[in-house]
Nucleic acid binder design. Structure first.
Lengths: 224, 224
DNA sequence: CAAATATAATAGTATTACTATCATTTTTGA
DNA sequence: TCAAAAATGATAGTAATACTATTATATTTG
């Protein structure tokens, strides 16, 4: 498994960065520590100057990789979804029963990813928190249509489409497969957020995970 | 109807503002034009200086009403949800059948509010766009727990609870009423956003509104 | 009409989000 | 191995942001 994955590279749309952060040690340190720092102080307070101090590097060097902190967030977001997509494809590949496959898929996109040995410079727990707390900010902007045209959200959209296809395989007559798929993915992040900050308006907790809720929702809605 | 409502005041948690904007002409102009300006240029580019220019008033005067633009967004958000809550209570009050009541409630919280004659200084279309595009930013912050303690999100939470109660009245054995309620409300905003910017990952459009999708979802999930 | 209150004008501060330039270090390939 | 190229670091500078503070002027009110 480790060997199989040692050559794996998560492919992020190229236009997001000025210089590929995977191509150098400094680039990897930028990604590694930006995830930790954004998780610590929040994206709104995060600056390249603070990141530079953390990694003992200069603000101007970071600008050679990303033209703005917004682009860095887009990179982190795309990396996350590419990684989830990889797990989605890998872990559902061998499931032939359509219902089981859909259930497994929902479990994967709704769970918080576990720490693993691949890509050791990525703190998966911190990354997951960032997606829950900051991901919406990557598209809730006035530039969203332009950035969408440039392909910055392609991985996210592809995951939604994969789930949509699985929904339609399991329930060919269901009319709202795209909306259900996008609701599960975005709704799961929201339920994670609510369980951490607004516990009174969610049933989710340590035992009832967003996966449990959305699997139940899908099975009942699709009458599986 | 107009008479009945002429004394109506939308009650926003007091701690959100320094001075009640409903208490003066300048205050009302601040609300009126901040809604228009945020809708025009987006919350991220919005500043009190630009707002001051629009209303022919001074930046320093606006700070006497709101201590930051974040607080102003919280005010606008609370105002919106209070207004939706009012419609929710008013329009479902006389429905005795639990299923019909829930369906009406979902329709109300998922629809984009129509322009009306009450509160003429609030541009309801612009307000609705702001909620779709900016509302998440009001709680996706590092200060959310502190602000939640101070009651800034109480109206939003109360709406979710009202929907939750209606779900339980219609389907007493359903286990995830809070999560379904919060998913409908937040998911509806997301579907509105997708239909405007990511049409390929939603089924919603001019004919299939988020209301249609979520009413279908609730009826099937709750087996009504 | 005086006192209180509200608003406006001006100035100032630390920080942000960059850009530009030049110096130094590291890599590389002949 | 050495010179050129590339990468990184250091420094400086800019316009804008998100405020605070102070003082002046206008408006309201009792």
């Amino acid at each position: 498994m480790k060997n199989l994955l040692s050559n794996l590279k998560i492919a992020v749309p190229e236009k997001i960065y000025v210089k590929d952060p995977e191509s150098s040690i400094l680039g990897k340190r930028i990604i590694e520590h930006s995830i930790i720092l954004i998780n610590d102080i929040g994206f709104d307070s995060f600056t390249f100057k603070k990141l530079g101090e953390k990694i003992g590097s200069n603000e101007s060097s970071i600008y050679r990789y990303f033209e703005s902190k917004h682009k860095l967030l887009l990179y982190i977001s795309s990396w996350y979804w590419a990684w989830v997509e990889y797990q989605l494809v890998f872990e559902t590949h061998s499931i032939s029963n359509d219902k089981d496959k859909l259930i497994k898929a929902i479990e994967i996109v709704c769970r918080t990813i576990k720490e693993d040995i691949i890509f050791p410079h990525i703190n998966k727990g911190a990354l997951n928190n960032i997606i829950i707390n900051e991901n919406s900010k990557s598209f809730l902007t006035k530039e969203v249509d332009q950035e969408n045209k440039e392909g910055y959200f392609i991985i996210y959209k592809r995951i939604v489409e994969r789930i949509k296809d699985m929904i339609l395989n399991a329930a060919p007559n269901y009319e709202f497969a795209s909306s259900l798929a996008s609701t599960i993915i975005e709704g799961s992040l929201h339920q994670h957020f609510l369980k951490d900050h607004f516990a009174s308006i969610t049933n989710c907790n340590q035992h009832i995970t967003p996966s449990v809720f959305f699997i139940n929702l899908a099975i009942n809605t699709l009458k599986l």
